[in-house]
């Protein structure tokens, strides 16, 4: 029982990341009808927003203390980040909380990136075949990835979670199991809560605002909404930007869990596509459900007990599930009829 609970928890945070990326992919697909292979790159860009924010904060002032010397006999250098010098405690707090605070940077940046991408490139691909859309966004993903590689280098850049949430919680003890059995890092809990909040916000936005209503109408029947005199294209541009922000935020918050490097986007993209297809193309609840489901399945499959029976199952479980679901339930878990079938 405790092992199962532990794996459930382990699967949830990864599932959260899958769900967030898949949600954005589905939003874009459902509204614009575009298969966006650059969505993983957006996730990566978000992660690098956190990295650059951290690096900007860490621009240091170097002072040489003439009184003291280091063990090697050179004068001791005292390095203090400028934010700390100018802002004092608040600066220190900012440094500590650089990952969550960088959300404030990531939101405008990702909005801009999404907007430029949609207006500059995707717009011209509405009426082209899906293969062309896949290919051009794939090319874009390579370009974005290589730009990040030139700027930040090829090595992963670890980011730290804020001090207060750096440890791990002994959830097991709180639930009445033996202490030390179910230990779950606080940051993953934060990530899970964050993912749930973002997903909830997106759904609420689509469900309860007039804008969201128009977007949903546009997803159902784009032409009719256009005939009613609504500029659906502009709304869809905003939806694209929102999807970019969702992917970016997923990336920002994921940095303490996985040190970001330039190809992290591609790694997540493949899995997210599988998630989208399993959930059903164009179904938002499907994407979220499938994201968490596959995350949990993956962590269950990596249990030693399971691996002993089916060696290697942890490596292939997601794809295996995808194959089975596509063959048994061709439209995915919650897919609508007639999406992407021609």
């Amino acid at each position: 029982m405790d092992v199962i609970l532990l794996q459930l928890l382990n699967g949830l945070d990864k599932g959260g990341a899958y769900a967030l990326i898949a949600l954005g992919l589905t939003l874009i697909f459902g509204t614009l009808g575009v298969v966006n292979f650059a969505h993983g790159a957006l996730f990566m860009l978000g992660a690098f927003c956190a990295v650059s924010f951290h690096e900007i904060l860490n621009i240091e002032m170097v002072a040489i203390d003439p009184e003291k010397t280091t063990a090697w006999g050179t004068p001791l250098e005292i390095r203090t980040p400028y934010v700390e010098t100018y802002l004092g405690d608040f600066g220190h707090w900012m440094l500590n909380y650089s990952v969550p605070v960088s959300i404030l940077l990531a939101i405008p940046v990702m909005l801009l990136v999404g907007f430029v991408m949609e207006r500059g490139l995707i717009k011209h691909f509405y009426n082209r075949p899906h293969a062309d859309q896949i290919l051009v966004t794939f090319g874009l993903a390579i370009v974005l990835q290589e730009i990040i590689k030139t700027v930040f280098g090829a090595n992963p850049i670890p980011q730290t979670a804020p001090q207060t949430v750096r440890g791990a919680a002994d959830i097991g003890a709180a639930l009445g199991f033996d202490p030390g059995v179910i230990v779950y890092p606080y940051w993953r809990m934060v990530y899970l809560g964050f993912a749930a909040a973002v997903i909830g916000a997106v759904f609420a936005f689509l469900k309860f605002t007039t804008f969201g209503m128009v977007v949903r109408a546009g997803m159902a029947d784009r032409d009719t909404v256009g005939l009613l005199g609504i500029n659906i294209e502009r709304r869809f541009t905003i939806v694209f930007a929102i999807a970019a922000v969702v992917a970016g935020l997923a990336g920002v918050m994921y940095t303490p869990i996985l040190p970001p490097d330039y190809h992290m986007g591609m790694d997540f993209l493949v899995l997210s596509f599988v998630v989208v297809v399993v959930g059903g193309m164009g179904s938002l609840p499907g994407a979220v459900a499938a994201g968490f489901l596959l995350g949990i399945l993956q962590s269950f499959a990596s249990m030693n007990e399971v691996k002993a029976i089916l060696p290697g199952i942890d490596q292939i479980i997601i794809y295996l599930v995808a194959v089975v679901i596509l063959l048994v339930r061709p439209r995915g878990l919650l897919g609508r009829k007639g999406v992407m079938e021609s």
Partner: peptide, 15 residues
């Protein structure tokens, strides 16, 4: 067919 075919082949290759 369509993108489902692409994903299926991708899944098999990744496996």
């Amino acid at each position: 067919s369509g993108i489902y075919f692409s994903i299926l082949t991708l899944a098999f290759a990744q496996m």
